[in-house]
Design a protein around this nucleic acid. Structure first.
Length: 109
DNA sequence: TGGTTGACGAGGT
DNA sequence: CACCTCGCCAACC
């Protein structure tokens, strides 16, 4: 398999439209591996070196928490990018998360 | 080959 | 609402 799990994660992440966010679990489920949500986040560690660019800042955990912000440089960059796209972030949490949430399983059809 | 690692998720206290 | 514990799965050393 040339398209490793990582590559698949990147593919889905790149499909996330601006102003929208999704969760690691949702991506994992979209790939058919619902239980490997942790792997999705792990894959994102390579997002920084992945090409084309992967909007990792649009991926948060199931609670809308910016758990991966500390992997950015600086950590506050993640929130900056999100707010720049119209996503309100308060206390490391996405405002109206349920509204801006992008479900790859339904929106991607 | 086997054990450890995680940017997680759900459930319980 | 906040914090803790357990479970899952693929990649990495």
């Amino acid at each position: 398999m040339k398209d490793s799990f990582y590559e698949q994660v990147f593919e889905i992440a790149r499909l996330i439209p601006e102003g929208r966010v999704t969760s690691y679990g949702a991506i994992a489920k979209a790939l058919g591996s619902a239980g490997s949500a942790r792997m999705v986040g792990y894959a994102m560690s390579n997002a920084g070196i992945a090409h084309p660019k992967v909007p990792a800042h649009r991926v948060v955990n199931g609670s809308g928490l910016l758990t991966g912000k500390f992997h950015f440089s600086p950590p506050e960059l993640m929130q900056e990018l999100l707010e720049n796209e119209g996503v309100i972030v308060i206390d490391d949490r996405v405002k109206n998360f349920k509204t801006v949430f992008w479900n790859p399983l339904e929106e991607l059809i």
